[in-house]
Amino acid sequence: MLQVASPDPMVPQVMRIVTRRKDAPDVFTLRLEPEGDDLPAFAPGQFNMLTAFGVGESAISVSGDPAKGDGIVHTIRTVGAVSRALAGLRKGDTLGLRGPFGVGWPMEALEGKDVVLLAGGIGLAPLRPVIYRLLAERDRFGEVAILYGTRSPGDILYLRELESWRRRLDIDLLVTVDHAADDWHGHVGVVTTLLPRVAFDPENTVALLCGPEIMMRFGVQALGNAGVPDEAIYVSMERNMKCAIGLCGHCQFSPVFICKDGPVFRYDRIRYHLALKEL
């Protein structure tokens, strides 16, 4: 009855920072390569637990290209002690990694469908692996719309990549910010206001949302108003996590564990609980 747990899922493997790039005032991207062990394969939407040795561990989504085997890429926002410690690391430094964990985006459900990605703030990072896949296998999907909202023009992640994607004629990519100075000529307003500006057939669409919970709740509403049913909407959830493997109890969201049953959930399966406070 007892199964062997090997290797120990709570022990991190050592990774070395190959590149470090600053994306925004409080956001940076690390590319990591393993010391010795093989590179862990991952699916879009999965996350790793990153350890700043001596400080602690934090759950961070993978933001790189799953098809590119050149390391594991994480885009990190400095919000707490661990991310601040990770922010202090430089090229050549080591950190710990456990993962990948969790259930990611439903890539197979996107095939043949129009795809709407609704990203808010740092929520663009967990969706970037999806974008790579959509672009690499463009003919397997219908219309593709990428709608990205963030705080201000200076907070826009992956600016150069977004510009190159926007030049493509086979996708819609719109960026909006909450407020801007007058040197910004793009959209200003909440991300949901972009929905009417892109083409998709609501009855044949799958929408993926990632961002602050409030933004996702309103995003789901706007998609619903546009005719996209809850069953075709997926959201990526976030809760406190200590183990990422369903053993520490922290990330419970009523019946589910965000770490192992999610972080990506089909909206209709959690909408009841999302509406309750302090659950």
Binding site: G120, D178, T193, I214, M215, F218
Partner: peptide, 17 residues
């Protein structure tokens, strides 16, 4: 008004540490 509410909430802003 609803959009303004969301902007005022500053949902992408840095959380209080």
């Amino acid at each position: 008004l609803q959009a303004t509410r969301l902007q005022v909430l500053d949902v992408y802003g840095k959380p209080a540490a």
